[in-house]
């Protein structure tokens, strides 16, 4: 059996077990922690020599496959708020279109790779830092070292802004009343991130739905998957059309590993403690962030690259 496979768009030969193994590891983490693997997959692909623009676009393609089966399962369980999902999706497609155009312009200028990396540094830093602190606090509370009661939710500026938005609409499945502008704008931001970072946006979308849209947890995952699936479909087609950076051979290799890893991870997760898992994931996320940050600030070994990131 040949151990190498040639990626026709990346123009790069990769070790087959390495790519499937990479998919497996990210899938394992995805299954363990119940978060998307996209935000880890793209940086890891970049570390293994795949051009950032190809890594991001191909990862979007891989997420289409990964989220399709999940969304269908949640749809059958009745856990998808289609009305909310449609608003998030419209915003996501518009934001994704904007993100693809930003990448196109920056590729012309030669700084698309920089934007992808710096966006990752910021997002991984925020998400990893938040998770780390939150998990640490939870562990301390549990061990009795911090016993301060949780503060009551306050009427924040954000809450007042959301309430003042026009066209309040009732979302039956989620049981909330909200202006459609909120999911449109937030979906737009997620779509833009999906295009730039090559992620589904689940790791940002879930906290957004829980903390900003106040949706109940049981519909959050299914609705997030609905939005992620269709946003990534749109982003994949646009990246293929505008930037020619989707390598579906790479996407398929990753998918083989990630689906298997996700199944094993999901089974393992039931045997491990939540907060310890969270701290482990947060540490991993922060390490990836530091690695990417160092690649931006340390003097590169090679100071010239092919124009357009290839």
């Amino acid at each position: 059996m040949p151990w190498y496979i040639y990626l026709p768009i990346a123009h790069h030969s990769v070790a087959l077990p390495l790519m499937v193994g990479l998919g497996f590891v990210v899938g394992l983490l995805s299954g363990l922690f119940g978060v998307g693997g996209g935000f880890l997959m793209t940086p890891l692909l970049i570390m293994f020599g795949i051009p950032p623009t190809v890594a991001a676009a191909s990862d979007s393609n891989q997420i289409v496959a990964a989220s399709a089966s999940g969304m269908y399962a949640h749809y059958r369980l009745g856990n998808v708020d289609f009305k909310m999902g449609m608003y998030l999706l419209i915003g996501g497609v518009l934001g994704g279109t904007g993100g693809v155009q930003i990448i196109k312009v920056l590729r012309q200028m030669g700084n698309a790779d920089f934007l992808i990396k710096i966006t990752y540094v910021v997002m991984l830093g925020l998400v990893g830092g938040y998770m780390f602190i939150e998990s640490l606090q939870a562990l301390r509370v549990r061990s009795g070292r911090a016993s301060a009661p949780l503060a009551e939710p306050r009427d924040t500026v954000y809450a007042r802004v959301i309430r003042s938005l026009p066209f309040p609409t009732r979302f039956e499945k989620s049981g909330i009343v909200l202006s459609p502008l909120a999911p449109l704008v937030l979906g737009g931001l997620m779509g833009m991130l999906a295009a730039i970072m090559g992620v589904g946006g689940g790791f940002i979308m879930v906290p957004v739905m829980v903390y900003l849209l106040r949706m109940p947890m049981h519909v959050v995952v299914g609705t997030s998957l609905f939005q992620v699936l269709f946003t990534c479909i749109a982003v994949t087609i646009m990246q293929a059309y505008s930037n020619r950076t989707v390598d579906f051979v790479l996407a398929l290799l990753l998918l083989i590993g990630s689906t298997l890893g996700a199944q094993i991870g999901a089974r393992l997760s039931t045997r491990l403690k939540d907060d310890q898992l969270k701290i482990f994931l947060a540490t991993l996320v922060l390490l990836v962030m530091v690695k990417m940050l160092l690649s931006l600030v340390l003097t590169p070994h090679i100071l010239i690259s092919y124009h357009g990131g290839h």
Partner: peptide, 24 residues
């Protein structure tokens, strides 16, 4: 682009059936 999406959807559905996955 459309073919890449179609193949990904097929692959996702197939693995979903294979593992009866709820995915993530």
């Amino acid at each position: 682009g459309i073919s890449a999406v179609a193949i990904a959807l097929l692959a996702g559905s197939f693995t979903g059936l294979l593992f009866k996955s709820r995915g993530s």
